[in-house]
Design a protein around this nucleic acid. Structure first.
Lengths: 116, 116
DNA sequence: TTAGTATATGAACAGTTATTCATATATTGA
DNA sequence: TCAATATATGAATAACTGTTCATATACTAA
């Protein structure tokens, strides 16, 4: 491989791409965030939290699985700022971090023709 | 675990969550799409293609790595409708599937305070 | 058809990740 | 303080995924 019929335009695009490529740290941050929301078990938690904030017990009730597994998933979502937590007595109450999360989910579903 | 201080509201939310949970197929489709865009090597391809369509040679030039690795990544992105391809002579020219892709990337970067 | 170029792909290995199990921490009420 | 409840977490294993290497396919030009 060496060139193509659009050598000039593509080469310029490639050059611009290298110059405008986000730095490694930004790439890793975005990567980790998408990875956080890309697992079926965690996606279910997000879809569940669209209905409103919930404590762990009720998240388990909503999505199934064990308390331990859900807790591990919650930590990953929380570490990536997809959800937020507040303590309320003995419980930790989780909710979606902000409106960006819902927006991304809805964009994806629109794009893929999924009804949610 | 059995209940919490917000038993009623959370239980209702959990019930609504179960009732409104997308079916397994939709969950898997969304999951696969986010998984596709959640790998640093593939994210780089997407950021590169923001500059315009490119053939494989120039994508390799833009993001680095081997032709084989890039080809494998392109297939995953294509299978998940994140990018689209058209043949142009000996070359396959790739581009972002539609404006949803850019929108999702920008939402994520806004959310995470990354400049792109 | 043959040679050359561009791209794709199967298999294997290495690295990553989700779940389970056991246990730890934190809060509440007695 | 102690017991009970809610949640979190470390370690281990099993499943998954990205890359590499070798090779295959597809197109072009001669």
């Amino acid at each position: 491989m060496a060139s193509c019929d659009h050598e000039t335009e593509h080469h310029l695009a490639a050059k611009a791409a290298r110059e405008n490529m986000p730095d490694e740290e930004a790439i890793l941050r975005v990567s980790a965030a998408f990875k956080a929301i890309s697992e079926p078990s965690r996606l279910k938690i997000l879809f569940a939290l669209r209905q409103g904030e919930m404590c762990v017990f009720h998240i388990v009730e909503a999505v199934g699985g064990t308390q331990s597994a859900v807790s591990h998933q919650l930590r990953i979502l929380r570490d990536n700022r997809v959800i937020k937590a507040r303590r309320d007595g003995q419980n930790i109450v989780y909710s979606l971090a902000d409106e960006h999360v819902v927006a991304v989910l809805e964009l994806a579903c629109t794009h893929l023709n999924c009804k949610i």
